[in-house]
Design a binder for these strands. Structure first.
Lengths: 251, 251
DNA sequence: TCACAAATCAATCATTTTCTTTCATTTTCA
DNA sequence: TGAAAATGAAAGAAAATGATTGATTTGTGA
């Protein structure tokens, strides 16, 4: 049993259940408690999990989401740059999907294409969109209070009736193995659906999202183009091998 | 059973039900009362909940702030007074429809009933509603930029799947012969539909709306109860012959 | 309003479980 | 083969747990 395999098992269980017991690992992998403890210590040092008495848990950050307002303050200049770049991808007459979230919100301010139609699940986007005179459709459904996103079965049904020239998504995690992820399963389902309905799909992500994995999978990496401000050649190379990645030029 | 798992259970139940009993936790998780108490103390210290005698509750500042609807009624401007009065009609557990518009918006601030569900077409209402922790559904469809109301065929279809204990509408005209009217036919259609789906229907109207007629008919007078601050005996008598009219008392 | 019973609570302590550290053994790989 | 790394076992330390105590709060009925 390779160390890598053990680590993968531990992280897999964590990502699907949120917590893991030492005893469980000992029994399933048939290794000693000492080894498990060493593994957990190591993974903790790499910031992959948090050790707790009796086992381990996902990092707090990945389980609990920040509220919309808290998020907005985070990496704001980067988000604005990414938003502006993404807005430039929208052409006259396009019909686009705009995900809920702060980065896509920044996009709206920079939208200049004419005669575009925007479909969104982000209730914070609506006033700004319609004030700008953009033809706006809101997907109906339950309003999730933390993220101010519309979710639920009704929402998926309504969304599935649209087709988009371009889909713009926000995500919480981008990982070479686990793809795009977000904490809430319902939101992941919506994002995943919007992704399938878009001819071109873009994921907007500042650097804090890379190498992160959160609870719910949206799609594998290759199904979208990443738009980011990151300019670490190593990371770009790493992800470019699997998917397309467009950089916002840092001036 | 990991501490994290217990905490997750407690917070999950809290988020879905609002309160939790210690005994319930003891039985479900099969752990001692001591441990439960320790967990609750810890979570309270982390600001995740508030301990109450016998268990714990979600912490919500809103609970204490309001509840003084009555007092506020005196010195509020018209719309707020009407909104506050209407909010008082909403009882625990109600499922209500809230029309788009400024008067219905005022209602939200004064909503204090517990466990209510709100369905709305007013996109300006959404953030406030969900910030207050109210279960909120947005009707999907086209966002009309002037009134920030959701309209269209999709909206009517989605709306028609709901039933409401109470429907609260705003209108532009109230006339003894022409009934309730509003300028936009699409909005009229939505209002008319919401009216049919409500067990009790209330129209919120300040005095400027009386004797006015606008382009599109919503419904005849008798299909709703008017809530107004007007106190002209002549007008009250005139409309009372056809429908019910409730006055916000001016003290 | 009052008193009383029942329920809930905080504090304490013995017990159990888990953790860290250390060291001997096994495995890996040059 | 031999050094380095990984593993497992064990002992004492630390943490978590559950039971018990007496104090406090709550609800009930006079």
């Amino acid at each position: 049993m390779l160390t890598e395999e053990r680590h993968k098992y531990i992280l897999d269980v964590l990502n699907s259940k949120g917590t893991i017991h030492i005893q469980e690992i000992v029994e399933v992998l048939n290794i000693s408690e000492s080894t498990v403890r060493r593994d957990l210590s190591l993974l903790e040092k790499e910031n992959k999990l948090k050790r707790v008495h009796g086992g381990a848990a996902l990092l707090q950050q990945k389980r609990t989401e920040l509220s919309m307002n808290e998020k907005l303050l985070h990496n704001l200049p980067e988000k604005q740059r990414i938003g502006a770049y993404a807005a430039g991808l929208v052409k006259d007459g396009d019909c686009i999907f705009l995900d809920a979230g702060t980065t896509t919100y920044e996009m709206i301010k920079h939208l200049t294409a004419k005669d575009i139609t925007v479909v969104t699940t982000g209730i914070t986007h609506l006033e700004l969109l319609s004030d700008k005179g953009i033809a706006t459709y809101i997907i109906g459904g339950y309003v999730r209070s933390i993220t101010k996103a519309v979710i639920g079965q009704t929402a998926r049904e309504m969304l599935s009736k649209f087709r988009f020239d371009k889909t713009f998504l926000g995500v919480n995690g981008i990982h070479i193995d686990y793809g795009y992820t977000t904490p809430d399963p319902e939101e992941a389902a919506i994002k995943s659906l919007a992704l399938k309905l878009g001819q071109h799909v873009y994921v907007l992500a500042d650097e804090s999202k890379f190498h992160e994995v959160t609870f719910s999978e949206i799609a594998p990496l290759e199904e979208a183009t990443i738009i980011t401000n990151i300019n670490d050649p190593a990371i770009i190379k790493e992800f470019n091998s699997t998917t397309k990645i467009e950089m916002v030029v840092d001036k």
